[in-house]
Amino acid sequence: MKYTVFWGCMIATVEYGYEISVREVFPRLGVELTDLGWNACCGYPIMQVNNKAWLYLASRILAEAQRLGIPLFVPCNGCHISLCEAQHILIERDELAAWVNELLKEEELRFNPSKPIKVLHTIEVLHDEIGLENLKKAVVKPLSFKVACHYGCHILRPSDFPRVDDAENPSKMEAILEAIGAKTSDYPERLECCGAGANVVEPELVARLCGWKLKVVKARGFDAMVTSCPACQANYDAKQDAIRQIMNDPDVSLPVFYLTQLVGLAMGIEPRKLGLDLNKSPVESLINL
């Protein structure tokens, strides 16, 4: 299993716990990772104000990945939808592919719509590529706590092009958790959005939305939440202090992990090597840092 990794903006500039845990865990599971060679925005954050700028930014990453000829591994949900959607559009719409290739000339890049590149997310690499059986074999310290899955919207929707799991009834994350010994279950709020896309406009409402889900998850008997997206993690993990102040509610307090951090813990990897000292939520209530 060989992949080119595209890290995107959030993981590479602030959500280091995801990058650290991927770099630590994946090679031990037989995955060979090479960075893309440079890093640049996938365009998703500015799609809302200039759709063409998004398509240009996403296309140049796809073109570089095509040039390297190795499947792309994209750990961020936003980057994953961005690149999958751009590739879908470039294949369907000749005139847009021609437009983007004209711009890419100067960068000595070209996207070839007849040679689509595989774009995989963390959940796909763990569940579909490494596989649950191999994952189970790597477990030396099965997790003992009960974890609520938060998939993040953009790996599940929309349905115009293939996504990571079923939009209304996903199960891969739960299967991964069960493989590493953790307990999990469905809950009514499982697919509710963290609201990250509205942080630009409605930061307080987003904070309350996150606080609500964190409280609900705790009230339903979970010990922790797990994410696989840096935007969701930033909202649920890094902002708990701000959420408590905005909601004036000291009860908003829940350990929130990246999926790769939990897999690493079950493999017996030392917590700090998984970037767990960078989580802002009280992960130390469940693990020894």
């Binding site: 440079w38 930014l57 140049r60 000595e108």
Partner: peptide, 22 residues
């Protein structure tokens, strides 16, 4: 201990393109 990821090879062209589109 994380590696530098670097910027696009031709930053001038990258900037020119973005300024043109947006």
């Amino acid at each position: 201990g994380l590696p530098e990821l670097g910027k696009p090879t031709n930053m001038d062209a990258f900037r020119r393109n973005l300024r043109k589109i947006a």
